[in-house]
């Protein structure tokens, strides 16, 4: 089972992505736009049911994109804890308003309608935003992200720094793995360590790792020089890798639809006060 999954998914520096996906036929710019717009839409919607629907749509996108849903397991603690924390802050710090109505009690604490509604609104937004963010990194390689940014005319040095940063995160984790393996080979037993010792040990890991980064900065700057790149480089440079991507008619359609969707949501929200919590089904349920 595991080997089948390994074949279907591959590791990038940031997450697990599907080896093959219909989403890959879209240009990286379309995919980036999807990420940006889905990162904004829930912020304009105060109807939890719509945001939960939005989250379901994102989950369907995961399935459409052939992302193994089991790879989302690592985000479950974040999703659950975020919910618990959000509800607790609204339950323990409801604020004061004469219009609040008590809808029940928990451990002797009064639960008010509006704060609970606000908790649902906040959590539904967080959930929708969180899933859209995870979706992007579960369906894009680092080079797709860079290709999107370069297509959008981001200066080469900036996109290079971003690429190197992502790579550096991967190298940092690999180095950490090597240090830990070396420690285990010399008989260090993590299980037997006290919590404070573990915290100290983890903090101390960063010393050799930053020293390595320091050495690498020299190596990479030499490598760039050797390949003819310098900060003062002038003149136009070809961007060969962009020739590998095509912006098709379906990309144009996708981008237009996404932008239109955001514009319409913003327009209807501020022109006709749509998507407000007053008309939410949750209001009726809570009351």
């Amino acid at each position: 089972m595991e080997s089948v999954q390994t074949k279907k998914m591959m590791k990038t520096l940031l997450a697990l992505i599907p080896v093959e996906s219909p989403l890959y036929s879209f240009h990286p710019v379309s995919r980036l736009l999807l990420f940006v717009i889905t990162g904004f839409i829930p912020l304009f919607i105060n109807m939890p049911e719509l945001n939960f629907m939005f989250a379901v749509v994102v989950l369907l996108l995961f399935i459409y994109s052939k992302v193994a849903l089991s790879s989302l397991k690592m985000y479950l603690p974040v999703i659950l804890c975020a919910g618990i924390f959000t509800f607790l802050t609204f339950i323990f710090f409801p604020g004061k308003d004469p219009d609040y109505k008590v809808i029940g009690h928990v451990f002797g604490l009064a639960l008010y309608d509006q704060p609970i509604m606000n908790a649902f609104i906040a959590y539904s937004k967080i959930l929708a935003l969180l899933l859209s963010s995870i979706f992007y990194f579960s369906t894009n390689r680092e080079r797709d992200i860079l290709a999107a940014l370069r297509t959008l005319k981001m200066p080469f040095v900036a996109s290079y720094v971003l690429g190197l940063s992502l790579r550096s995160a991967g190298m940092f984790l690999e180095d950490l793995h090597t240090v830990r393996e070396a420690e285990q080979a010399r008989g260090l037993d993590y299980a037997a360590m006290k919590f404070t010792d573990k915290v100290k040990l983890y903090s101390m890991y960063i010393i050799p790792l930053i020293s390595l980064a320091l050495r690498r900065s020299d190596e990479i700057s030499n490598a760039l020089f050797v390949k003819g790149y310098s900060l003062k480089s002038s003149g136009k440079r070809a961007d060969y890798i962009l020739t590998k991507y095509r912006f098709s008619a379906s990309d144009v359609a996708t981008c237009v639809v996404l932008i239109l969707l955001l514009v319409l949501i913003v327009y209807f929200k501020y022109r006709y006060q749509w998507f407000g919590s007053d008309h939410s089904l949750f209001q009726y349920v809570i009351k």
């Binding site: 860079l146 690498r216 790149y229 890798i241």
Partner: peptide, 9 residues
């Protein structure tokens, strides 16, 4: 030490 990119190409 001399790689600057994310794919061989």
């Amino acid at each position: 030490a001399q790689f600057t990119s994310m794919s061989v190409e």
